[in-house]
Amino acid sequence: LARLDKDHKPQPAMAEKWTVSEDGKTYTFTLRDSKWSNGNPVTAQDFEFALKRILDPNNAFPSAFLAYYIAGAEEYNTGKGNADAVLVKA
């Protein structure tokens, strides 16, 4: 959705912009108009699916901890929660 520039500041990538709630707990991303190589549109549901797939303990992705800043992510990844409790919604 975003990438870090040379100064480690987030810059738009697949998201053209985003907003952060006043309490800093909710990020809302607006996606660029993008397509997969087969011509299908890239959707918010694709990102929700990907994040939850990374966190699925059955997949044992070593990078899953990078998503622990999302509420419910660590619990799901460590088997103490479920995918529905991961607070990423499309």
Score class of each variant (00 low, 15 high):
R53T: 10
V20M: 07
E22T: 13
A73C: 07
E22L: 12
N59C: 05
K6G: 15
G24S: 11
A71D: 14
T78S: 12
A2T: 10
P62N: 08
N82V: 13
A44V: 10
L55G: 14
A13K: 04
L1M: 15
A85K: 14
G79P: 03
F47E: 06
Y69L: 07
Y27K: 10
Q11E: 13
F61Q: 15
Q11H: 05
G81K: 05
S21A: 15
L4R: 12
E16V: 04
E48C: 06
S37F: 11
K52V: 00
D23M: 08
D56K: 00
A50R: 09
T78L: 15
L31F: 00
A44W: 07
L66A: 15
E48L: 03
D56P: 03
R53S: 11
N59T: 05
N77M: 01
V20S: 10
I70S: 00
T43G: 06
G72W: 02
G72E: 05
A85H: 11
L1E: 05
V20I: 09
G79S: 05
P12V: 09
A15I: 05
L4Q: 06
K80L: 13
E48A: 06
G24R: 03
D46W: 08
D5V: 00
A13M: 02
V88L: 04
T43Q: 04
G39D: 11
A50G: 08
D23G: 08
E48G: 11
F65K: 14
P12Q: 02
A73T: 12
D7N: 15
N82L: 06
A83M: 02
K52R: 12
F49R: 14
P57N: 00
G24Q: 03
V86D: 02
W36D: 06
N77F: 09
N38K: 04
G39K: 01
A90W: 08
A44K: 09
G39I: 04
Q45N: 05
Y69G: 15
T78Y: 02
K80C: 07
L51Y: 08
R3P: 07
P10W: 03
F49E: 09
T78D: 12
E16I: 05
D33A: 09
E74P: 04
I70N: 07
K89D: 14
R3D: 13
I54Q: 12
Y68N: 13
A83L: 06
P12L: 01
L66S: 09
G24T: 10
A71Y: 08
A71Q: 13
R3C: 07
K35F: 05
Y69S: 13
R3Q: 14
A64N: 12
T26F: 06
E16L: 02
V86P: 04
L51H: 00
K35Y: 12
T43I: 00
S63P: 07
W36G: 11
V86N: 04
G72V: 08
K17F: 01
K9F: 05
D84R: 06
Y27N: 15
D33C: 08
K35A: 15
D46F: 01
N40V: 07
K25Q: 14
L4W: 11
S37C: 05
D33F: 01
E22F: 09
